[in-house]
Amino acid sequence: MKNAILLLFAFVVSNQTFSQLKYKVGDKAPKLNITNYLQNEPKDKNFDKKYILLEFWATWCTTCLAEVPNLNKLQENYKKNKDFVFISITDESPEKTKKTLERVKFNSIVVSDQTKKALTDFVVDDDQGSYAIPKTFLIDNKGIIRWIGEPYTLNEVVINKFLNGKEILESDNTVSNRPAPPR
């Protein structure tokens, strides 16, 4: 058991340490490729000049699904800002995601890119093709990546700084700043 835990720890650390994203904070974000709108389809699908929270997830990713309530609460807190959109993107088919969407409530715009271009552009390591999800990107209204992280470190301090054009510090990424869970 101890060896299994050590092996799991080594895998997680190596995946986070050695899997390097193609883009970093301050880079221009690649164009987002969407093949299907799965839930909460917006009337206006032009996300240019919008602030975007882009969340990569999958039906098999328990951590991704566990973070949906936090993302829903954050979205609820910022719903009056019509220039700020929450997009949850998977590379899975609509048929595969349907059962998950029936049991897990997403407030975000849920989309799929079955070509895997978005996943490859944003998340996949250049050299090895490996990736870790969930992964969240905050992209400003000029198309610049302002924050990259895991959804469990995303909170109102980070989002407020993002929306106000202020530098987001590593110390802003704390679980203690998360919104209270829904009742």
Rank of each mutant, 00 (worst) to 15 (best):
V175K: 14
I148M: 04
F122R: 01
T17D: 02
K2V: 14
N141F: 14
I144L: 04
M1A: 14
Y37V: 11
E167G: 02
K49A: 11
P42G: 00
K117N: 00
A66N: 13
F137T: 14
K99I: 08
V110F: 02
P151G: 09
E167D: 10
F47S: 10
P94S: 08
E170M: 05
I159R: 00
I34L: 00
L6N: 15
D27E: 08
N164G: 02
E55C: 10
Q20E: 14
L53I: 12
L7C: 13
D121Y: 02
D91S: 13
E55Y: 13
F86I: 06
T100I: 08
Q20R: 13
K31L: 14
S93A: 07
F162I: 07
S14T: 15
P94C: 06
P182M: 03
T59R: 10
D83W: 02
Y23W: 04
N46M: 11
V13M: 10
P182G: 09
N177W: 01
K80E: 15
K116E: 01
D121A: 05
I144S: 06
Q114L: 08
V25I: 12
A180Y: 09
Y23P: 04
L154P: 06
L163Q: 07
K50W: 11
K166Q: 14
I133V: 03
I144A: 07
I144C: 05
K24T: 15
L54Y: 03
S19G: 15
C61W: 10
K80Y: 09
L74V: 05
R178P: 01
K50M: 14
V123A: 12
K166C: 06
L74I: 11
V111K: 03
G26Y: 03
Q20Y: 12
G143I: 06
L71S: 09
I144Y: 04
L21Y: 03
N3A: 12
A29L: 07
L38W: 05
Q39L: 15
G26M: 03
K161Q: 02
G165W: 05
T35V: 01
L32I: 10
T35F: 00
I148G: 08
I89W: 03
D121E: 09
N3Q: 14
G26N: 03
T100V: 06
I133E: 10
